[in-house]
Each structure stands twice: as C-alpha cells, then as structure tokens.
Simulated scan of single mutants.
Amino acid sequence: MKKTKIDEKDKKKLIERLKSEGKINKPDPSTLHGVALWGWYVGAVIASLLIALTLTFYVVPSKIQAVSFRLPDPIPLTGVLKENNRLTDAELLLENQIFGPECIAVDKQKGFVYTALKTGYICEIDIKQNPAKIIRSVRLNKLEECDGTYSSMPKCGRPLALRFAETGELFVLDAYSGLYMLNFAAEKVSHLLLGGAEITNDETAAPIRYLNDFDFLPDGRIVISEASNKFDDRDHLYELFEHRPNGRLLVFDPKKEELKVLLNDLYFPNGIQVIKGKVYFSELGMARIIKYSPSSGKSEVVIDALPGYPDNIRLASDGNLWVPLPARRSTKDHYIEEHPALREFMTKAI
C-alpha cells in the first residue's frame, strides 16, 4: 500500500475538522485541575501516614518490653484432635441478652446455670425453660455506669471465675476486686479477698493485680491463678505480647486470711482444676497444661505444644479435663514470636 504524505498545513486542517465533528475532545481545564488536586491529596495522605508510622515506631514509647521466644510447633490435628463440626448445631442461649459471659457454674440440685458477665452481673439462668430465661442477676457492687467498657472495668470490676463450695455458697473471683462469697437466695455478698492485696509471707512480692481462676483444695484453702502482676485484665494483650513470666499461682486461706505464692515466673496462667489434691492449670502463654503438687512443691508439664492457646479448664464427668482453646495456633505464629519489636509496635497502635 502506498503511503500518502500529509503536509503540516493539511494535518492542522484535519485535526480541526475532527475536533468540530466531536471525534477529538478538547481537554477540560477544570478536569485537569481536579485530577491534579486529587493526586496531591492522595500523596499528602500517604506521606502523612508514613510520617505517623515512623514517629510511632521510633518516638512513641512502648507499653511493653517484649522478648523473643519460640514455642514448639503445635501438635497435629489428627486422631482425637481431628477437626469436627460437633458444635455446628449447638443451641444458642440468651442470644443478644448477655454481654461477655466468661465462666459457668451449675447448681445440680436446682438445675440452674450461673455465669459472670462483662458488665459485672452474676446471672442465674434456668435453661430448662424454652427459651432459656434469666431468673435474676446480682452485682458484686452498687456502682453506677458499669457497662463493661475499657474505662469502667478498673472501677466496676470484671468477674471471671465461678464455683460452688461444698457448703452451697457461690464463690466469685473478680479480676480486679478479688474473691467474693455470694448467697444468691439472700442476695448477700461477702468480700473475702480484696483486690491489690499484699502477699502475706513476702514483703518483696508484688501485690496481686490480675486474678483469673480458682479452685478449692481439700484442706479448705483456695488456689488462685494470677495471669499477671504487671498488667490488668483490660490490658491482657500487653501481657501476651510482652511474653515475660509475670504470672503466679497463689493460695488463699480464708480462715487465717493469709495469701501466699505457690509458683512464680509463669506465662499467663489461666484455668485451674484441683483433682485429688493436685492442681492442674493452663499456662496460656506457653500453650500447655501443668500439674502442681502443693504437698511436694513440684510441678510437671502434662501436655505441651497444644494446637491452640488454652483458656479455662474444668473436670468432665468421665474424669477427663475440658480445655477450651479460643485461638488456634499455627507455625506462622513463629514470625511474630521471634520479632519483639513488631509486637511492641502493635501495642502502640492499639
């Protein structure tokens, strides 16, 4: 095909004709200005974010002093640990009626279930009714504006653990304010152990800070897990991200009003279950279950490298232990375990 050469004059005429026919649009100055302004705005936002992140990382002090660690790889989910859907068809009770139920105690004689809420209420629930119904609720204190928010928790408390004593009273452990005995029928509350109490036999020991769970020893004393003596319940993520042994296992004698330390240097001890005088407890920060003997003072690991982080622990009717794992572990967790600076940065952003 022979190419036709168009001189500059004809080219201008052709362009003008195409423009007049609408086949070539003239650029809109306002549009060009808008595009330029939007580009400047996006660039300014990105620059501001980069500056904020840099200042946060290098200038803002961290609330924790994180250390590097590496937990053993989680045991594989095979055999009895194989994933299943048994809870898929579980019935939901009191949906949208209770806020943050943490622990459950059952009165086998009455058939009532008791749970502690984030708002500070202890609820008595009749699950035999259809639907389940809250019979009554009791507060450990009479303070106002206790809605379970971050700012209200130190003042209002956060009940975490419930157990019935052999005498029938319901004992309640509050993360902030200590141990209570509750007569639900009379709505009478007795405060047995104050929050922030000092350790009886050690003046150098830190006072209690973040109580978690408890159980009764055969001699009447009460063994208590203290998740941290540095951070409280509302800042539990700081404790987990720091990964230092700030937790303890305590024992309280209600008759003598003595509080002692059984074990130091624990990583977020959580649920407790006493079996034949031996104390089984979950060490959430290490993903394992430990057995402790108060008589010998010795402890041993019962199971290590759990596939999730153990929270509570309770005795089943068949003699086994129920151990809920609210968060699953992965080998990918090793990256954040081995990078304490990253965990410190994350706490700055919380």
Rank of each mutant, 00 (worst) to 15 (best):
M1N: 11
T4V: 15
K5W: 04
I6E: 03
E8Y: 06
K11T: 13
E16D: 03
S20F: 12
K26A: 10
S30P: 08
L32I: 00
V35Q: 10
W40P: 00
A52E: 02
L55N: 05
T56K: 10
Q65H: 15
R70M: 14
I75P: 15
G79P: 04
N84W: 07
T88G: 13
T88A: 13
T88M: 11
E91M: 00
E95K: 14
Q97H: 14
I98G: 09
G111L: 09
G111F: 09
V113F: 11
I122T: 08
I125M: 08
K128W: 08
N130R: 12
N130M: 05
N130V: 06
P131C: 05
A132E: 07
K133F: 01
R136I: 00
R136P: 00
L143N: 08
E145Y: 01
C146F: 05
C146S: 11
S151H: 07
P154T: 03
C156W: 04
R163W: 03
F164C: 10
E166S: 13
F171A: 07
L182R: 01
A185L: 05
A186S: 11
V189L: 05
V189H: 07
S190Q: 15
H191F: 03
L194G: 11
A197V: 02
D202I: 04
D202T: 04
A205F: 03
F216L: 05
L217Q: 10
D219T: 04
D219V: 03
V223K: 12
I224L: 06
S225Y: 08
N229C: 13
K230I: 10
F231K: 08
R234F: 07
L237R: 13
Y238L: 15
E239Q: 08
L249D: 13
P254E: 11
K256L: 06
E257D: 14
L263C: 09
N264V: 00
L266S: 12
Y267Q: 12
N270L: 05
V274E: 05
G277N: 06
K278P: 05
K278W: 02
L284A: 13
A287R: 14
S293C: 00
E300S: 09
L306V: 07
S317A: 09
G319N: 14
P326T: 00
S330I: 12
T331Q: 08
Y335F: 05
Y335H: 01
E338Q: 12
R343A: 00
A349G: 09
